[in-house]
Amino acid sequence: MIDFPAAHFALFGLPRRYRIDAAALDRAYRTLQAEIHPDRHTSADDAGRRLALQASARVNEAYAALQDPAARGEYLLGLQGVASLSETDTSMPMDFLTGQMERREEIEDATARGDHAALEAALAAIGGDARDLEAELAAALDDRHALDEAKTMVRKLRFLDRVRHEITEALIEAEA
């Protein structure tokens, strides 16, 4: 069926690096699911159906991890023995933290005012920052093999994701 312990990249026949061919990933994902999805194994015995369930879940997990820029970076670091999100080591550059604190305050104010435009603008700005960070992370991981730097970038990305998530939830709440 599939090679369960294989790395996420290998499952989809992709090279193990940060820069990813999103279209190739999508194609490989669909081709794989078309074979292994439980819907394709409804007439199998219990064991066969369970295997299809597990294989399909494994492929979904790998796909989600590779699609997400922070998760992909974290996964690549993990493959090289670097845990980027260990709870005992949460150091983050001071200037980044200060910048994000200010941003957070703005967001809280905008939420309180019900200022959707400001929230949308903040969302767009964070999106831009995230894209810049992804480009840096790609260079750090694929070109320079600078794992320590990459670790900090992944953390920053995670941080931005959280803020993005909070703004989105605030907007959803406001639109409900």
Binding site: P38, L53, Q54, S56, A57, R58, N60, E61, Y63, A64
Partner: peptide, 8 residues
């Protein structure tokens, strides 16, 4: 909105 089946 996680795609199913899924194990986490």
């Amino acid at each position: 909105n996680s795609t199913i089946p899924i194990a986490k």
